[in-house]
Computed example of a mutant assay.
Amino acid sequence: MSRRAAAAAGPGDPLKSGRRVRYIRDEIVPSAPRMVLGNALCARRTAIGLKQEDVARLLGASVSKVSRIETGQHQFKEQDLARFFVIYQVTDPLEQAQLRELAQVANQQPWWQPWSGVAQKHLQAVVSFEDMAQRIRVYEPLQLPGLLQTEGYARAMIAGGSADVHQRQALVDLRMERQQRFRSAGEDKKLICVLDEGSLKRRYGTPQVMHQQLEHLIGLAENPRYLIRIAEQDRYDLPVHLGSTTIWEFSARILPDIAYAEVFDGGLIFQDEEQVDKRKKAFDRLRGASLSPQGTVRRLKHLASSGYYR
């Protein structure tokens, strides 16, 4: 997204009002670029004092359509945007151009489209937010986060699911592509991880796969873009009740921070500011109580040299 389009998304925060938890399983996936456009339109609607019901009446559409547009669940059409210009009194040519650019970006086919037939809906949402976020905080108690996995580890973990052989390889390829795109992003994009020591000791694949995974983590820990700490398994006082959590933070205030929790057959997206803030604080407490970066590397090297996976 261009800097001009990001600025058009503005400081508007439509997600402040009302609690919002979205369960994603089979429904239309919210897209981060579409949410940026919806965020901008919602901010404009709020600024001129209109409710969604008012906009729906003026559009001759349902309230649910207006809501889906503002939450990034609706494909945007050029004629819709022209009507919004009239209703929202957007007469400045520059502002119109900025919103058109946001709409153009929102309607582009995402790079992961070739995998849409095998990737579950909640995974597509994860990739969308992950792609646009500037900082990603992750705690996974059961397995390593996808952005840290070696290909061998990913293949062994995905093999335990319900996908067939061809789907498994496609999902592995998608995971590797996600990692490549993260590596090629700007230096300001960071991954902040707390690894549960139990997940490091849970074996996926052969001993060789696990050893390679540990060596991979040791290498990543030397990269300033990967901030990795281990929550020790034998510490009874660690605040691990947070559970599986990902928090996406976006630059230029294009979107409010979003939290995510994966469940067995889908995912929960948290957009309410208070709920997200609680998860951020819980994550920071866990991170602060975990091993230091130096202690984390020492623990990884100990696991790699101890023959634990033989």
Rank of each mutant, 00 (worst) to 15 (best):
A6Q: 13
V240T: 15
L171Q: 08
G18L: 12
D257H: 13
L50Y: 15
N223Q: 12
H241L: 07
A185T: 07
R135I: 02
Q143W: 07
R202T: 05
S116N: 15
A185V: 03
E78I: 11
A47D: 11
K301P: 00
Y204T: 02
A154H: 07
R310E: 13
L242E: 03
Q294F: 04
S17N: 15
I218L: 05
L238V: 09
Q179A: 13
R181A: 01
L286P: 06
P110C: 09
D54S: 07
Y139D: 09
D265Q: 12
L214D: 03
R253E: 14
Q89K: 14
K65Y: 08
L227I: 13
K301D: 04
Q104A: 15
I136R: 15
Q213W: 01
R235F: 08
S116T: 14
K189Q: 07
F76H: 09
E78L: 14
G117R: 13
F76C: 03
L291C: 05
R68E: 09
Y236N: 11
K16W: 00
Q233I: 12
H166I: 07
M1V: 12
S292F: 05
V86H: 06
R287A: 15
R168F: 02
A156G: 08
N223M: 01
R253W: 03
L303W: 04
S62Y: 06
V66Y: 11
H216R: 08
L81F: 08
L171K: 12
L81N: 11
P11C: 01
K278Q: 12
T71S: 15
A8K: 01
L147H: 10
E249C: 08
R20D: 06
V21T: 13
G267E: 04
A261P: 02
R19F: 09
G267S: 15
S290I: 01
Q120I: 00
Q134T: 09
C193I: 11
A106Q: 05
V21Q: 14
P114T: 06
